[in-house]
Amino acid sequence: MWNSLKTMWIVFLHMFRRRVTIQYPDEKPNIPPRWRGRIILSRDPDGEERCVACYLCAAACPVDCIALQATEDEHGRRYPEFFRINFSRCIFCGYCEEACPTDAIQLTPDFEMGEYNRKNLVYEKEDLLIDGTGKYPGYNFYRVAGATIGGKNKGEAENEAPPVDPHSLLP
């Protein structure tokens, strides 16, 4: 008897507590920026694709839901010919983001991806690529790497000495 009254009292007290439940979808939850939601591909500060198709995200993916194919433009800049994520398999573990050496692949706070048709959960590069740098502003892999691309020759990356002339006799 006493126990029942005590329980009712506690329930009564809860009426005056702050509500935790929110009225989703009428009310949107506040998702922290490091939430592991829908995956995007970002661009570098110059507006070029950041992804260099190194296949590390695909290798890191525990459910093997990332498939891509590397290709190069005429100046040697490598990028994915296609980049596909099968979100019906994705477990949003974030390993791909961790593996990415160029900050290209990022997980975002968007989780609203429900579909009636499973097919529509297959995202191609056009669906994944955003226009900005995402969470990591400033980084541009090709400015650091030694590989040449259009507009950046040998010796023009950060911290690089001008190229050695192998025909020179000077010490």
Binding site: D64, I66, A67, R84, L121
Partner: peptide, 15 residues
């Protein structure tokens, strides 16, 4: 053992 993309490579054709 680290072959990747098994669940995505055919997904454009058949889920």
């Amino acid at each position: 053992h680290r072959y990747s993309g098994r669940t995505a490579m055919h997904a454009n054709v058949n889920i």
